[in-house]
Design a protein around this nucleic acid. Sequence first.
DNA 1: GTGGTCTAGACCACA
DNA 2: GTGGTCTAGACCACG
Lengths: 136, 136, 136, 136
Amino acid sequence: MIKIDPNDGTPIYLQIVRQIKYMIASGAIREDDELPPVRVLAQQLVINPNTVAKAYRELEFQGLIYTRPGAGTYVAKRRILFSDEERLRIIQEKIESLIVEAQNLNFTLEELAKIFNERLTKIYKQQTEEKGNERD
Amino acid sequence: MIKIDPNDGTPIYLQIVRQIKYMIASGAIREDDELPPVRVLAQQLVINPNTVAKAYRELEFQGLIYTRPGAGTYVAKRRILFSDEERLRIIQEKIESLIVEAQNLNFTLEELAKIFNERLTKIYKQQTEEKGNERD
Amino acid sequence: MIKIDPNDGTPIYLQIVRQIKYMIASGAIREDDELPPVRVLAQQLVINPNTVAKAYRELEFQGLIYTRPGAGTYVAKRRILFSDEERLRIIQEKIESLIVEAQNLNFTLEELAKIFNERLTKIYKQQTEEKGNERD
Amino acid sequence: MIKIDPNDGTPIYLQIVRQIKYMIASGAIREDDELPPVRVLAQQLVINPNTVAKAYRELEFQGLIYTRPGAGTYVAKRRILFSDEERLRIIQEKIESLIVEAQNLNFTLEELAKIFNERLTKIYKQQTEEKGNERD
DNA sequence: GTGGTCTAGACCACA
DNA sequence: GTGGTCTAGACCACG
């Protein structure tokens, strides 16, 4: 499920973090699902177990997973770990980066707004559909 | 218009390389346009001049810019232009990443849209004001 | 300044974390003060640099210090990183532990309250004195 | 009345050992008092019975408890009693640690006092109620 | 010279 | 068998 690109430039452990974040956000893995054991994932990706452990630690810090030592690693329940100021700070940083990149790529602000809001609407529809299905 | 994210994981000099590359490849800056001097950019971004110098060296090595010793640094002739599909693909990837981050921070899609559009509007106003001032 | 007890039972890196937390809380080290470099502290304590790095990473997680790669590690400005729910959860856990330990040690709740409030009052007086001195 | 803190850093079995030791050394439990069966305590603390068993083994090795096979586990004769100074020293160390934690989480001393005393009052009421019921 | 990443490999606590 | 800690030691990014 997870793929490492050694030439990516970003550290391996962050590549793992990013991909697991995607899986959690998209609902591909859910609360209390078990993640692959450190050693197993390390063997699959042909990297050192410590590197996987580091990725898991980072995710645990962000409140997305939890580990029960001796048992395994699991997807955590959604909860608000950081203060509102902190959450806002983090997301505004990312927004800032996105806008700058868009301008570097010669998009106007209007174009960016359009692409962004379209994507958001699409996801919104998907999620309301899923909720509808769950109710069935 | 370059933005550094210290938590990105990618080295600062590569963040600069990427962003300038995008500006060139998307036509945001053009042949023989002058890049900001190393020291000026370093001061703007609050980073070490060596780091900026390294980015410029890398870009020169890739043939995207050239330096005229004692004069300045300029965008080179040989340019690779992104297709519109390429530009769209890149920006959509970034948007995707922003949305994932927001969801894992427990922002709703509505909250994200609100924060994003507010920021965009603010920048839009700033830029139209600046243009107004330029005309004076 | 920092002392390691190999027979303590608690991991070395947590012993470091705890002691630095004390230094920060007591004002022994303050905002923007530099911590000893990883390698230096490791050599002093005769432990592996990675272990010190792990302690520093943990403190950075908790928002108590920040690192500028290539430069050094510094005491961070006080700020509220975690949500109120999270902060309350953490401190209530500790209070719970304290109360249980007190009962195990055959203190009555009244005795515990007395000892605790006396200690708190003492610190409170100290801190108001210090503020007074700073104003001079 | 044992409490496990998974984030403490010290192994669970040692947390149990320490707390039972305190109960014995402070007279909270006495010679020939029965300890809870391994399985019962494990269920209460939501941990593995092996972990409790290991703690009991360690306490037996230290001569603080003895087991009568098929019957139960009891507090041994040979007891080391803490002096009042010792008890006070231990609990003050814990209080110190709680205050440091609270300050680093940006609680004021007043807030800490309030949370602490509220919790204490609540437990006090519970315990007097229980005694009332016992009398019935 | 500073911190960051990664590997290889050992040992421990715990289920 | 699972995660956690620690060591030794290499290489890189950055100031």
